[in-house]
Design a protein around this nucleic acid. Sequence first.
DNA 1: AATCGTTTCCAAAGCGCTTTGGATGCCGGA
DNA 2: TCCGGCATCCAAAGCGCTTTGGAAACGATT
Lengths: 352, 352
Amino acid sequence: MNLRELSEELGLSQTTVSRALNGFPEVNEATRKRVQAAAEAHNYRPNQKAKSLATGKSMQIGHVIPFSPQHDMVSNVVFSDFIGGAGEVYAQHGYDMLLSLVNFDDEERAYRELARKGSVDGIIVHGPTQDDPRIGLLQELGIPFFVHGRSTDVTTAYNYLDVNSKSAFRRATEFLLDLGHERIGLINGSERMDFAQRRRSGYEAALIARGIEVDTDVMRSAEMTEPYGFSAAQEMLASDNPPTAFMASSIVPALGVRRAIESRNLTVGRDVSVICFDDAISYMPNGEGEPIFTAARSSVRDAGRRCAELLIGLINDPDTPPVAELWEAELVVGQSTGPAPKSAATIAAKKA
Amino acid sequence: MNLRELSEELGLSQTTVSRALNGFPEVNEATRKRVQAAAEAHNYRPNQKAKSLATGKSMQIGHVIPFSPQHDMVSNVVFSDFIGGAGEVYAQHGYDMLLSLVNFDDEERAYRELARKGSVDGIIVHGPTQDDPRIGLLQELGIPFFVHGRSTDVTTAYNYLDVNSKSAFRRATEFLLDLGHERIGLINGSERMDFAQRRRSGYEAALIARGIEVDTDVMRSAEMTEPYGFSAAQEMLASDNPPTAFMASSIVPALGVRRAIESRNLTVGRDVSVICFDDAISYMPNGEGEPIFTAARSSVRDAGRRCAELLIGLINDPDTPPVAELWEAELVVGQSTGPAPKSAATIAAKKA
DNA sequence: AATCGTTTCCAAAGCGCTTTGGATGCCGGA
DNA sequence: TCCGGCATCCAAAGCGCTTTGGAAACGATT
């Protein structure tokens, strides 16, 4: 059942039926009721493609996810929670989410196509790198877009929402320093990512401010998986000068760090402290009462919601001046941190 | 730049330009080259909405994800890997993925709309329950769809791919029984889900075959989070008759189980054994060499790929007879299992 | 009685593509 | 010379909706 058939059945013009259903004022309330009833009875839904073609709006928002055989963004820990949050907001506003997985090499073409094909009204950019070429590209293409995160070396104004990774890691590192830890391992995410760069610089800033040497022997960077956290921590703990505390870039590698610590018969929070960044992932909450890990926390689901809201605002009013939101993470104290052990020998001793 | 402008510039009809670009035979190779060059030069991409409207195909595949304030499917551990796999295949075939988050209450309406609106050519059904109403609904709507999983009580034929949860859990439980374990805790997923039912029945079947009582005191069912695994295992271990082994429904609660075990100063694989179902989630791999957990393994990413392939086949040829694939999980032995301790007193003893 | 403003409706022109049903020109065979 | 077949191209009719620019009817105002 399409609009023509419906209008014929009602003995009305397509114009009137369309207007009746879309809530335009210039139609008699009585006829509107009649139209609505008929539409309901026939389970009529306007064809979205036709509607889009006529209006120019697709009511879809694109998310381009690059993938390679090695890794992809979808399998990023935080991805599903982000789109969960964004999706809720889309639903409220009548938008759908268009997910487009593309080969790493095809990424530019994918954005071009998405913009030109007109299948989306706006785009969310995930996981910006330090000088992300996508931002310039999308500006050139002239399609509304919103970045989750930031791209340090991009100087033109663009719309983004980011958490202040640097201050979060600086504060967390200071927290450990205050507890007397002087050798702190950094289990960072892949430093291709802008946020990982910022986290490292926060960590370094805290150390430098206290006159503590920044030692790359206790700094690692890779995709944030559990085994990565395990092996990185394992290596450092086995070294001659093991850290007494770790900073992990996500709760996932932090679980690996925990496993490494426990595999050496050490106790988390007593022998070795751990702080992680906690994105408040729904299926991996940081405990139920007292947090398992002391953590810098910021909900990625909330970020998804907010990005979606702001992007929709942008779509509705393209002349909005660029928005930039910077969220501060909160530092929540859990069971995984405690004063540095009196003598660092504790850790070495267990090595046998 | 649209088709009309392009054709005017070329001094050709829209028909010819369209046919040249779409590889139809009735156009001179020389003109085709000319058209392609011009299209390339102007960075022309056909408007997808117009194309869809004309052809009737949207080249989009829908995934409807119900959500509620409490929980949703997106935040299911396996979700992102599944769509990662499916997305790869979609990309190869020129399809995009339409993700539609909807309120639990609105789910039926969402499917109806998706089908009627014509914005998708096919639908993937996630997380079927035991007698899932969506299957009947989609059959009635007459849109190609594919189910990831199965719905036990649906008797009509439909297309699905599932892993044999029952045999996987039966074999895993038998493996523990062979090691001498006689009290085995079950940390199941939410038994609203069909697969969770099957896993339980596999577990029960193994016990019954050995004449061991099925005891609901050591059986739990809930959303598969880490804290759930922790608290469920914690409770059981603290009981008068604690299990010497656990079966967990996913690696995520298994991590919680591990934490519970270690928090009681027990050792996984020696004092208490753990087996989990391992979906081979990319950011949570089960170790790198020897698996951390002994596990029934089946890659959910592969499942995503396969579902996508089969659905696309269905779309291209709607008359394909219903396909049903049942995958057997493989049982991989890792570090988390070992013979049952000589006396169950080991566990009790540590309780003080 | 003529004019005007409202209200309510409609015919028709798009939106940008595909596809049907020719038209045209050219060549070889009868 | 005429005709059929072939290769190449095109005009125009959709696809199902929105939206522009009236038209018709009616009561109210002058």
